[in-house]
Design a protein around this nucleic acid. Structure first.
Lengths: 233, 233
DNA sequence: GCGCCGCATTGATCTGGATCAAGGAGTCCG
DNA sequence: CGGACTCCTTGATCCAGATCAATGCGGCGC
């Protein structure tokens, strides 16, 4: 089986309903642009227009270019996730591979035209969009009202939920993004990210394993440091 | 005609397709909770679960309670807009009237069940959600990477697009929200908001009319001050 | 139209995180 | 296995915006 089909299958599995007619299915297959990206490679969508991206394999960041040398990471996405890349407006956006990736990219208008009759696909897209909105709102709350320490705690808890693996009672994660990516996601500098992680290590809340590995030693304490009003325990 | 119908009609007009069957239409009418709110009144959704809100008349803020005395305004919404209020998770959310309002509130799960077969309604909801996501991403960029002056400029330009009226060649707006609301939306303090507005007034970029009135005298200059990379002119 | 109240403005000072500046340590490649 | 390069950490200083503290003034009630 070729690489494209290998990437398309998980998309179909996750987004297209099983009973979907052969023509529509082939329509999506024809519309999908297969994008293998090496680590650090970017997808630019210079052609304008909104796009829909599916991560078949790997991990990506969605970056907004606010101005010269001021980028904001809008979201991280992992294998199996579907999301929208905005049409360039006040900012330009690009998708960048955190590690080797296989993506499927669709022009949003075409995707929606194909999906128009298929409620389940529209519903799937709605659910993905709602999840993105949910995460974006939480990010806005963190950026607007949280201290550096709280943002790091929120970030680690979120990553633990998404890519953490339980290992002898502890949650362990392998961060695919650099300190720079984290700082650009949290509205901080790399120095501040580093200092906050060091503090968590000094306070025995986390352990670090090499550059990317993190083990959460005390999740309760981390939640407390996240400064949530609810579920503070 | 009663107040409820008066509020339901604009909802039906905007969200429900014209050919929609009588039963489904009545289903929505039965599901809608009519909420007249006085200025400063809040809708709390203590019952948990996600909700969908339509603003029939008035203007609202969606507020997240980050922690004791630290609220973040997630979004402002005006008449005719449809949006989702998240289920309480790490934060609790409430909808607050900026002035006298008439809202329709729906339990999200029920709304989606009713809409399940109706692609156009799901599509309408998708479009609303995409717009919310778009705005939320721009907010995240502003909160993560922009200075106080830039945030105020972005805010004024955004409000001008949404509620501004052209008046002898100038754009004039009547802000329904207080300085506190603005500061809680932009991740600043009321003092900083006030100082930045004073500076814009001193620099003859805007005029103020009473507490709420703003006239944009030099929109180009304001765009420059917004620090956009694209369309900087 | 006048006086009161609460929001808004303005000023003085403080501070969390940015910026500037060296080192240190993973990791990759030969 | 070693060398070097890049990313990360740590330390010193600075500054935008927060905080603290008085007034100012628009709008509403009487």
């Amino acid at each position: 089986m070729d690489m494209f089909s290998h990437a398309f299958d998980p998309f179909a599995e996750r987004v297209l309903p099983p009973h979907l007619g052969r023509e529509v299915r082939c329509g999506f297959k024809a519309l999908a642009r297969f994008c293998p990206l090496g680590k650090e490679d970017s997808l630019e969508f210079a052609g304008g227009g909104e796009h829909i991206v599916f991560v078949a394999r790997g991990a990506t960041k969605l970056v907004a270019h606010a101005s010269e040398a001021r980028d904001q990471v809008v979201a991280f996405h992992f294998a199996g996730e579907l999301y929208t890349v905005p049409e360039p407006d006040n900012y330009s956006y690009s998708v960048c591979a955190l590690r080797d990736c296989e993506l499927l990219a669709f022009a949003s208008s075409e995707f929606l035209r194909l999906a128009a009759g298929e409620t389940e696909i529209v519903r799937q897209l709605l659910d993905s969009t709602r999840l993105s909105l949910q995460r974006c709102r939480e990010k806005a709350i963190a950026l607007g009202r949280k201290t550096a320490g709280e943002r790091i705690a929120v970030f680690l808890l979120g990553m633990a939920d998404r890519i953490g693996v339980e290992q002898d009672g502890r949650i362990s994660l392998e961060l695919p993004m650099s300190r720079r990516d984290i700082s650009e996601s949290l509205g901080l500098t790399i120095e501040t990210v580093s200092r906050q992680l060091s503090r968590l290590k000094d306070d025995a809340v986390i352990e670090t394993v090499g550059r990317a590995g993190i083990v959460l030693r005390d999740r309760t304490d981390l939640k407390r440091r996240a400064g949530f009003l609810r579920g503070a325990a």
